[in-house]
């Protein structure tokens, strides 16, 4: 277990010298400096970052499940290899992110426990089922595209370890997006059955996709302080617009439609997309664990964790009693 004890020094409102330290901290951020693991930071900044990185790490590990379930069914060898590699990348991202959160003083074990107990959240999109192979294509293209919009922005944020992890993650996500887009192009231009499969998947996924960047700026509780401390450089609505501008034309190019109830229309003057506001109460309910696949995701993660407990225990014992390495021919 990696322990990341940080020395807590007058980092809360009301502590002696807090105001001065905060002013210096905010001046550093305004200057564009990165905050590093051992640096002084307000407790509220530390907590917000732990919350964000933890949710992100959980999303990667839970995100491995809907697509991972389709690995045994991938319809040719190229797709099979690409899908295994893609899901493996998501697991790798979880590892990188748990490590980044550990630099702020929370252990991986604690974070995993909070995930499987249902206390910690993960992205709304992984609370839904991947019902067909076309869902895998849709997730890999559009969810990863949405994630790139979010993560490219977050990568420029003020906390150094998170930003560096995100840069590496974005690099891999770009491959996933290409892989997903290629699958969507193949299905969209394939037989009628394949095209219909993809359209059905898009119809199912459009709601979670519209909710993916989080509640509207009018409703989001966290935006203001996160933007001030440059943890986040764009609001949820700005990210959603950026996603729509880039991807709605590409969706139309493939001969696909977006369900009419969203009233999606382009404002030619501003370039903005107008749409029916998602039901944010539903979004909150889903991320609190009431989505269609929430119970299954948690059950699966918990099962993997419980069934692996004896292995983790054995590794700890073996590490204490490390033998000489076995020679290799």
């Amino acid at each position: 277990m990696i322990r990341c004890n940080h020395v807590v020094q007058n980092d809360k409102l009301g502590d002696p010298g807090y105001e001065e330290s905060l002013a210096a901290f905010e001046a550093r951020i305004a200057h564009g400096d990165k905050v590093e693991a051992g640096d002084w930071m307000p407790d509220a900044y530390r907590r917000q970052l732990i919350r964000l990185i933890h949710v992100h790490a959980n999303s990667e590990i839970c995100g491995a499940l809907p697509e991972g379930g389709w690995i045994p069914h991938a319809p040719n060898l190229k797709r099979k290899l690409a899908l295994i590699a893609k899901v493996q990348d998501e697991v790798g991202h979880a590892q990188l992110l748990y490590r980044a959160a550990e630099t702020l003083g929370k252990s991986r074990e604690e974070m995993v426990e909070e995930l499987i107990s249902g206390k910690a959240k993960y992205s709304n999109v992984f609370h839904y089922h991947a019902e067909t192979w076309a869902d895998v294509a849709t997730i890999s293209w559009l969810i990863d595209a949405g994630a790139i919009v979010n993560q490219r922005m977050m990568a420029e944020g003020s906390y150094g370890p998170y930003g560096r992890a995100l840069k590496r993650i974005c690099y891999e996500e770009a491959f996933h997006l290409t892989h997903g887009y290629d699958m969507c192009i193949t299905l969209a231009g394939g037989t009628k059955k394949q095209h219909d499969m993809l359209q059905d998947a898009l119809n199912r996924w459009w709601k979670p996709i519209m909710m993916f960047h989080g509640p509207s700026d009018k409703e989001s509780r966290h935006n203001e302080i996160l933007m001030k401390w440059q943890v986040k450089l764009k609001s949820n609505d700005e990210q959603r617009q950026e996603f729509l501008r880039q991807y709605v034309p590409k969706i139309y190019e493939l001969g696909l439609t977006i369900p009419e109830e969203w009233n999606l229309r382009l404002d030619e003057d501003t370039g903005d997309w107008h749409y029916t506001e998602p039901d944010w109460a539903e979004f909150l309910s889903v991320v609190r664990g009431n989505g269609p696949a929430s119970a299954l995701r948690l059950r699966t993660r918990k099962m993997a964790h419980v069934e692996g407990a004896w292995v983790r225990e054995a590794l700890e014992v073996a590490a204490r009693d490390e033998r000489m390495p076995v020679s290799v021919n």
Partner: peptide, 14 residues
Amino acid sequence: SVWTGLAPILEADI
């Protein structure tokens, strides 16, 4: 390949 996402520790999973 079915272990992907389900192994006892992330490093072993990868």
